[in-house]
Design a protein around this nucleic acid. Sequence first.
DNA 1: ACCGTCAAACTAACGACCTTAGTTTATTCG
DNA 2: CGAATAAACTAAGGTCGTTAGTTTGACGGT
Lengths: 192, 192
Amino acid sequence: MPPRPGLTTERLVDVASTLIEREGPNGLSLARLAKEVGVKTPSLYNHIAGLQGLQRQLRLRGLDTLAETLSRAAMGRAGKEALVAVANAYRDFAKQQPGLYTLTLRSTEENDADIQQAGRRVVEVVLAVLRGYGLEGEDALHATRYLRSTLHGFVSLEIGEGFGLELSPSDTFDCILDALDHSLSTSFRRDK
Amino acid sequence: MPPRPGLTTERLVDVASTLIEREGPNGLSLARLAKEVGVKTPSLYNHIAGLQGLQRQLRLRGLDTLAETLSRAAMGRAGKEALVAVANAYRDFAKQQPGLYTLTLRSTEENDADIQQAGRRVVEVVLAVLRGYGLEGEDALHATRYLRSTLHGFVSLEIGEGFGLELSPSDTFDCILDALDHSLSTSFRRDK
DNA sequence: ACCGTCAAACTAACGACCTTAGTTTATTCG
DNA sequence: CGAATAAACTAAGGTCGTTAGTTTGACGGT
């Protein structure tokens, strides 16, 4: 049906996701993507809605694989074991695809139903972990924000600057998880 | 000395910092900045080293004012009181200048001595707060990363998407500070 | 086996932006 | 009052993203 190359949206997002790791989230351009797949730039518009559309697709893929990775890690575990597994899965995802992670967590400026739903799937996994701590209702929501904040903050800083120093980030991460486990076990019961 | 406008690097950074709030970190362009101060784009190069140089100056200013804001908040306080004051100052800074905050915390890719030093000044304030908890040595370094991760993660998420829902972010922040205080008071003693 | 259809590629062109090189101009200092 | 200097300017080149309009080639039905 198509004259020659036979592109698909899928393939473009594939190639773009490798590009974003090589060049960083800001180095991603339609020009480079087009060159990479052997096509002129305007041809891309048959498959994606411009640069914004491409970024949106990447964010969507990032959220989807993140949600799946996390739920896999949570399966069959509970309590601190689940917390540790999910947290490490989160960190590994960010470290293996820092470009995609960074783009995914960038503020979107526009309320996009699909993206919001994909984001909700991630939050749900975190909520499930907290259920193992007996947290529900408002407490669980506060705790979810706490957990997300800590995880996102840690991996952002680790990706961004590597924390400098020669102190092992993994050791720090373990300390943080101990502290989180302790907080979730005790101080997040409604006692305000 | 100058023919007409009499620009300075200072003034350019001033105007750029207002621009970055109106347009977001990605909306900042030399073209807009030039128009704003009534000058042609190339003239800017007499005062700043291109777009990268401008962003570097903004990051520098962001780190400097952040460090000063935090040390002001920490002055004369100790323990939980210091923690709460510094944390709120951090959050307020990010909320009042989200564009500058975002740009400041973006990974820089290049090891710039001035920027690294400015960043160190921020870390030192945090370290000082932790000294009030009796933390020193490796423990203090781990704890600093914990604190920075949580603060940065929370304000990033809050700036980015507002956390959705109608649950008050301020309430969550208070919960988080309680949990942090508790962790720092107990579980960060060397007991691994 | 042919032809029309249709999607996917292309070319052409515009506008925004960053950057460099070379030129003008006004102020200040000797 | 004249020359030096620093800050503005014009001109020009390059990269991008995007839109509009054109070509092309594979597929389905007659």
